[in-house]
């Protein structure tokens, strides 16, 4: 793992770069000075207790929340500079660079699996046939062949989440965010979703995964970030963080997961 120079946005290989991010909901600060970056082809997992700001960080990166202060850069270009966003039209250009997978899938219930995947593509001007082909090949990859005409309510949670992953991948984003992708699933279904994410990691998909699945994080990530109280407390290789954590807070948190 090469060390990333966090002060240089032109470090080239970093697709996402966040600097000095601050975010408060009303009077309560949720993110206090977060800096972090993701290199192309890497998998970064973010772990930490509830309320530590993990999900908010992802939601800021995907423009679902507006930041108060700090920079967000994609491909070395400013989407947000010192808390100021680029114009809406340009923001939409940045939106095409990332995809997002939610805890509750958020599939469109009134659309078939096929339409869930295809409509966002055709609205972005992609040809209908091309959209269909992409959808079919992604569904195959997700182990969902033959499900294209099903409606979300006819699928299990694990299947729904895999459709959601296919939908997020279909616009061919450069980076994929996962916000606790298995937290709404029972253990049996968790496995099938994690397997798919693992497979994406093997294909060198750039991903940021907020998760409570520690063994998965250990196995799949290039880098692990531990957050608490709106700060990044510790980050490093999976072995550094899981086997030899430096901070007392990290040790205490991880002790809950080791029986």
């Amino acid at each position: 793992m090469p060390e990333i120079n966090r002060n240089d946005p032109s470090a080239g290989s970093s697709i996402l770069e966040i600097r000095g991010l601050q975010k408060a909901f009303g009077d309560s600060p949720v993110l206090k000075d977060i800096s972090f970056s993701v290199s192309t082809g890497n998998v970064v997992t973010i772990i930490g207790p509830s309320g530590s700001g993990k999900s908010t960080l992802l939601r800021c990166a995907s423009f679902l929340e507006t930041v108060d202060e700090g920079d967000i850069l994609y491909d070395g270009q400013y989407a947000v500079k010192s808390g100021v966003y680029v114009p809406k039209k340009d923001l939409n250009r940045f939106r095409m660079l990332f995809g997002m997978v939610f805890q509750n899938f958020n599939l469109f219930p009134h659309y078939s699996v096929m339409k869930n995947i295809c409509e966002p593509l055709t609205l972005r001007g992609i040809d209908k046939e091309e959209a269909r082909e992409r959808a079919l090949s992604l569904l195959k990859k997700m182990g969902l062949e033959g499900k294209e005409n099903a409606y979300p309510c006819q699928l299990s949670g694990g299947q729904q989440q895999r459709v959601a992953i296919a939908r997020a991948l279909a616009p061919e984003p450069e980076i994929l965010f996962f916000d606790e992708p298995t937290s709404a699933l029972d253990p049996e279904l968790t496995g099938e979703v994690l397997k798919v994410i693992r497979q994406l990691a093997e294909d060198h998909m750039t991903m940021v995964v907020v998760t409570h699945e520690m063994s998965f994080a250990h196995a799949v990530s290039h880098r692990v970030v531990f957050m608490d109280g709106g700060y990044i407390v510790e980050e490093g290789s999976p072995d550094q963080v899981f086997v030899n954590p430096q901070s007392e807070r990290t040790k205490r948190f991880l002790s809950n997961y080791k029986q």
């Binding site: 997002m100 939610f102 958020n106 599939l107 469109f108 972005r124």
Partner: peptide, 21 residues
């Protein structure tokens, strides 16, 4: 649910498209 709006926003739907579709 708010998640429907969020999914649409991330997928590039405009506000009008989100409401209508």
């Amino acid at each position: 649910p708010a998640g429907q709006y969020e999914a649409a926003a991330v997928l590039g739907y405009t506000r009008f498209q989100t409401f209508l579709r």
